[in-house]
C-alpha cells in the first residue's frame, strides 16, 4: 500500500514535469524543430540576447510587476485597515463582495470589462490609442488588490485591537503608531501579499492581452511567438525564466530555514 501510494505520487510528478523536461531539452536543439532532436547547440540562447523585442518585453514585464505590486500593497494594506473599522455588518460584507469580484471572475471577463472602460473613456477624451502602459498598470493593480487585502486582513485581526491606542498613549503621533506598532505586527501578511501580487502580475497573460494595446509584456510576446510555428527560442526563454525562479525559490527557502533554525536555537 505504501509502495503503491509512492508510485502514484511519482507518476503524477512525471506527468507534471514531462512538458517542462521537453521544453528544457528542445531549447538546446540545433535544428528548428521542437520535436525532432538533431544535436546540441546554444544557438537559441545566443539568439535571445540579440532579440530586442524580447528584452523590451522583459523590461516592461518587470516594470509593471514591481509598480503594480508596490501600489497594490500600499492601497490594499490601507484598505484592509479601513475595512476592519467598518461597524455596519452590511457595509462590510458589501465591500468584501466587491473586493472578491476580480478574484472570482474569469480573467477573460475582468480583462474585457476593463478594456471596454478604457476604450470608452479614451474615445470620450479623444484619444486614438487608449490602451498602453497605464491601462496595463491599472488592470494589474486591480486584480492584485484582493490578494493583498486578503493576506493582510487575517494578520490585522490577530493583532491586539488596543495596540495603536497604547502607542498613542505612550506619545506616538497616529502616523508613528502605525509605522512603529501596527505595521511590524502585520508585516508577514503585507510581505506575502506583495510577493503574491508580484508573481501574479509577472505571469498574467489574459488580462494583459486585452488591456495592453501595443505595450507588450513577456507573456504577450510569447503568445505571439506561439501563434506561428514555434521555434526553440521560446523554449530557451522559458528555460531561463524557469531556472531563475527555481534558484530564487531555493535561496528563499534556505534563507527561511536558516532563520527558523536561528529562532529555534534561541
Amino acid at each position: 500500500m505504501k509502495f503503491l501510494s509512492k508510485l502514484y505520487i511519482a507518476l503524477i510528478l512525471v506527468f507534471l514535469y514531462a512538458p517542462i523536461l521537453v521544453m528544457f531539452i528542445f531549447s538546446f536543439n540545433s535544428a528548428e524543430s521542437v520535436w525532432v532532436f538533431e544535436g546540441f547547440s546554444l544557438d537559441w540562447y545566443k539568439e535571445l540576447i540579440y532579440n530586442s523585442t524580447m528584452l523590451t518585453a522583459l523590461r516592461h514585464t518587470l516594470l509593471i510587476a514591481i509598480l503594480s505590486a508596490i501600489i497594490s500593497t500600499v492601497l490594499g494594506t490601507a484598505a484592509a485597515i479601513g475595512i476592519l473599522q467598518l461597524r455596519k455588518k452590511i457595509t462590510k460584507s458589501l465591500v468584501m463582495s466587491v473586493t472578491n469580484i476580480p478574484m472570482m471572475n474569469a480573467d477573460i471577463v475582468t480583462g474585457i470589462s476593463l478594456m471596454l472602460l478604457f476604450v470608452f473613456f479614451g474615445k470620450l477624451i479623444g484619444l486614438n490609442e487608449s490602451l498602453g502602459f497605464f491601462t496595463v498598470l491599472i488592470a494589474h493593480i486591480t486584480f492584485n488588490l484582493p490578494y493583498v487585502i486578503l493576506s493582510v486582513m487575517p494578520k490585522l485581526q490577530q493583532t491586539d485591537k488596543h495596540l495603536p491606542e497604547a502607542a498613542l498613549d505612550l506619545g506616538c503621533t497616529p502616523l508613528q503608531a502605525f509605522f512603529k506598532a501596527v505595521l511590524p505586527s502585520i508585516m508577514p501578511g503585507v510581505f506575502s501579499g506583495f510577493i503574491m501580487a508580484f508573481t501574479l502580475s509577472l505571469d498574467d497573460f489574459v488580462i494583459s492581452y486585452f488591456t495592453c494595446g501595443h505595450y507588450q509584456t513577456l507573456p504577450i510576446v510569447i503568445y505571439n511567438m506561439t501563434k506561428k510555428t514555434v521555434t526553440p527560442d521560446a523554449y530557451a526563454l522559458s528555460t531561463i525564466i524557469f531556472v531563475t525562479v527555481f534558484v530564487l525559490l531555493i535561496l528563499y527557502n534556505t534563507m527561511q530555514n536558516n532563520s527558523e533554525r536561528k529562532v529555534a536555537r534561541r
Partner: peptide
Amino acid sequence: FPMWMNFLIRTYSWISI
C-alpha cells in the same frame, strides 16, 4: 512549482509531445 512557469509555454510543450 510548474505554476511559476508561463502557462502558454507549458501548454505549448504538449504539442511537442
